[in-house]
Amino acid sequence: MSRKPTPPLSRKPLEIPPEVARQFIAEMQAYHAEYDVTRREEIAARARHMLLEHMPKGSKLRLTEVQELFDQMRKQS
């Protein structure tokens, strides 16, 4: 008995104001410039809160997901 693969979830892109996007990029740069693990987590937490303000109500975003996003964005730039 084989199962049909489920289609990937479709997500609506986030609408983030330009100033918030610039602040997010600044946080990402600060994150990568910081060597102290605790301070890096604080920076990622601030960025997480910024993103959550613009996500649909009830959305979840883990700190590790923000850190992964920072790493992925760094690799693409």
Rank of each mutant, 00 (worst) to 15 (best):
P13W: 04
L14E: 05
A26C: 09
V66I: 07
R40P: 06
K4F: 04
K12M: 12
A33M: 13
P8F: 00
Y35T: 13
T6N: 12
L52E: 14
S2P: 15
A45E: 15
E68R: 14
T64A: 12
S10D: 09
S77V: 10
F24E: 09
H32K: 10
S2F: 04
E68Q: 13
L9Q: 01
Q72M: 12
K60H: 11
Q23S: 14
M73N: 06
P13A: 03
H32E: 04
R40M: 03
R39P: 03
K12R: 13
M50P: 03
M55H: 03
K12C: 10
A47P: 05
P7D: 09
E53N: 12
S10N: 08
I16E: 08
R74A: 13
L69A: 14
E65L: 03
R11H: 06
K75Y: 03
P13H: 00
Q23N: 12
F24D: 08
H54V: 06
R39D: 08
T64E: 14
E65K: 06
R22G: 00
E41H: 11
R74C: 02
L69V: 07
G58Y: 02
S2A: 10
F24L: 15
A21V: 07
E27P: 00
M73C: 04
V66M: 02
E42F: 00
A44N: 09
L69Y: 05
A30E: 13
A26G: 11
H49A: 13
I25W: 07
L52S: 08
P17V: 00
P56T: 02
M73Y: 03
S59H: 05
E27M: 09
E27C: 10
E15Y: 01
R39N: 11
A47G: 08
S2W: 01
R62V: 04
P17W: 01
E34C: 10
Y31D: 06
M73S: 07
E41F: 02
P56C: 06
E53A: 15
L63H: 08
E41G: 11
R11I: 04
R74D: 12
Q23W: 03
E68N: 10
